[in-house]
Nucleic acid binder design. Sequence first.
DNA 1: TGACAAATGCAAGTCACTTGCATATAATAT
DNA 2: ATATTATATGCAAGTGACTTGCATTTGTCA
Lengths: 140, 140
Amino acid sequence: MLNLHNCKNELKGYNLKATEARLAVLKILENSAKPIDVTTIIEYLKNQHVQTDEVTVFRIIKLFTDRGLTRKVQLQEDKFRYELNSQKAHHHLVCQICGEIEDFSQCNIQALEKDIEKKKKFKVLDHSLEFFGVCSKCQK
Amino acid sequence: MLNLHNCKNELKGYNLKATEARLAVLKILENSAKPIDVTTIIEYLKNQHVQTDEVTVFRIIKLFTDRGLTRKVQLQEDKFRYELNSQKAHHHLVCQICGEIEDFSQCNIQALEKDIEKKKKFKVLDHSLEFFGVCSKCQK
DNA sequence: TGACAAATGCAAGTCACTTGCATATAATAT
DNA sequence: ATATTATATGCAAGTGACTTGCATTTGTCA
């Protein structure tokens, strides 16, 4: 996990002013093991007594995502989740019983993408691949 | 495409009363080449002079999905789309320029699912796989 | 340290979707 | 064909995630 100094540099590197709210949001993202939604971030900020308005947090996360610092994740919910873009490409395993979210790195769909580009003349730039089922704990 | 009589039987088969609104929604889904969202369905109904309340349409589509008649699709939008569940499993190619949605049937991720079950002890029940990029037309 | 562009806070608004409850209607029994 | 009844619908209001406009505050850099 990065310290405050590194967080500041991180933001600077993305040409973003290092405000208190932004630093706090970045830290929360660094510490989160799985993608989180904005409402949860706001809750964390409240617990940490970082005073901010909801709107600010929505604006921060949008900015982060536009600049490529974070990435939007949709897991069949009526809201978006976000995670740092720094980690290498991976997918999620979502337990439909307990809601736990695990990462899964191995993914070999380049072959499929090539197939699509060949057969459909569709230039693939991005894909979303998420799995839903029952995690090991909930199987017991 | 099914005719009215078949639509009625279709609904009966799912143990659903064949009301005017439900038949109309079912027909719209039959005729749609790609997953559509509820607001669009409501628009179509208005054009067809089928009088219904928004709420009813939301309830119908929820019921259809609960019963397995339709399937929910999320394409990085802030709303859900729906498509008939009858068609065999397929994925979507979403053009980020014109918004066009194409189907793509071939998908060979059973191997990946087996890998997940083995490595993570996670029982995969469902997955979502969507591709985003530029369609053939927009490449020109 | 001061100037200024950019970030924030507050109020209000939008959009997809849900809930509660009274009324209307499809399906079945008569 | 009609009455019965469970179920579907319409209307009003509510919720939750997210956005917009605008006045005020705050990092940043000269």
